[in-house]
Design a protein around this nucleic acid. Structure first.
Lengths: 228, 228
DNA sequence: GACTCAGTACCTGTGTACAGCTTAAGCGTT
DNA sequence: AACGCTTAAGCTGTACACAGGTACTGAGTC
């Protein structure tokens, strides 16, 4: 993996960071579903490095509670318990309104364009649902909104809760194809309106609203599969 | 370092965790002031392990933004920028009220006793100020309150912001001895009242109030030392 | 046939050696 | 005397080998 020697500053990330992003994304995107066993040697071979950097990456991811490493056994992707899911969602409901109130960045033309792109793709998704495509659109929407957060700490927390919630969320979404696509289109319509008006505060509350909807869907799903 | 084979469950933490707690505490307590260089080999020798586990610990701490590691140079404890301090405190102001509203644990007799202990120690501090003692009382108060948080995610965030703010906070507190001790006594008086009444919600708002006071002190300090 | 126990395969945890990078000191030149 | 270059020392980043631990398998026994 020959990394470009002198590229843009953003690409200098130490390859370990790139690996972390990839593995984390695989967990969030359900490429590694809960229960999947991550073997350090295997990943090391895939990325063409030794076990050392891989261990480093897994160690950091484990602090999000998404994987659990036990000596002699291995590292497995964990499914968050119902209580944990509740905690994460309760927190996201509180954080969402803060996006717009805590010194947000201003909205650029580029943001609006991305919003429109995502809307078009979401509309296409209504006609032919594709689980993977749904996840990707959602992910890019998340990136768009995260970029509007001006408070470093809030951005970090927002990102953490997204990672923790994503896996469960996408698991549930697999079972409700069209409903999910329609909801996404509705959300993107609202988001685009707020983007055009340059109203980040509105975006925060829109997020709060739709996270609430998603939370409801997950609750019923959890009640259906678990007793708690 | 012969670790006890079968102790209480809480002590099974893999020695790496113990080391992390210690190093993190040293940073928060200003044993490692901003600018201090942490050498992996040195720490490895101190804790009687190789560089590998030390690297692991530092790698995780670096995700809190408290240290920065550069290849070939070393790992230095960083002083958060004025903007970052602002971000952390703005966030703490928002999180504090949630302590009592998001499914808090119930207050036990033991909590009340600890509160009283801390109050007595804080009163003693008014007569003879001791910077180290002040930090320790504050830390134990933080642990007490953190223990009341029922939401795992919120508890994690609360802890993270504390670690990020502590170093700067304690740095400022060094310059205002008696004022700090008096403020701490006042805070503990309020906290103890709320503890006796079993009102966790009140504790959250008391925290919010006093974090606000502390924020003001830090602001004036930052204005005095920096231009921003 | 079911159960127990030893052996084995495979995983993570740790120690260690080496490579790459950065900085600073020391020498030579102007 | 001041500047530039070379060299060396010291740090982190990585690879690899070994130790420790767990779970599974299969033979032996009741």
């Amino acid at each position: 993996m020959p990394l470009p020697q002198k590229a843009t500053a953003s690409e200098i990330k130490s390859s370990a960071e790139a690996i972390q992003t990839k593995i984390l994304q695989r967990i969030c995107f359900l490429d590694y579903p809960p229960g999947e066993q991550l073997k350090e040697a295997e990943l090391a071979a895939e990325f063409g490095v030794s076990r050392t950097p891989i261990r480093d990456v897994i160690s950091r991811i484990s602090h999000l509670g998404l994987v659990e490493t036990r000596n002699g056994v291995g590292t497995v992707v964990v499914a968050l318990s119902a209580a944990q899911i509740r905690h994460v969602y309760d927190m996201r409901l509180e954080l969402a309104p803060l996006i717009g109130t805590m010194s947000p960045r201003s909205i650029t033309k580029s943001d609006c364009e991305i919003g429109q792109e995502l809307l078009q793709e979401a509309k296409a998704l209504c006609k032919a649902f594709d689980s993977r495509k749904y996840i990707e659109i959602n992910h890019r929407l998340h990136e768009l909104i995260t970029g509007l957060i001006g408070n470093d700490t809030l951005r970090s927390f927002w990102w953490q809760t997204y990672c923790q919630a994503a896996s469960t969320w996408y698991l549930v979404s697999n079972q409700r194809d069209s409903e999910m696509a329609l909801a996404l289109v509705a959300e993107l319509n609202e988001i685009n309106t707020a983007l055009d008006l340059g109203d980040v505060t509105a975006i925060g509350f829109i997020q709060r609203t739709h996270i609430g909807y998603g939370y409801q869907r997950i609750k019923t799903h959890l009640l259906a599969t678990e007793t708690e």
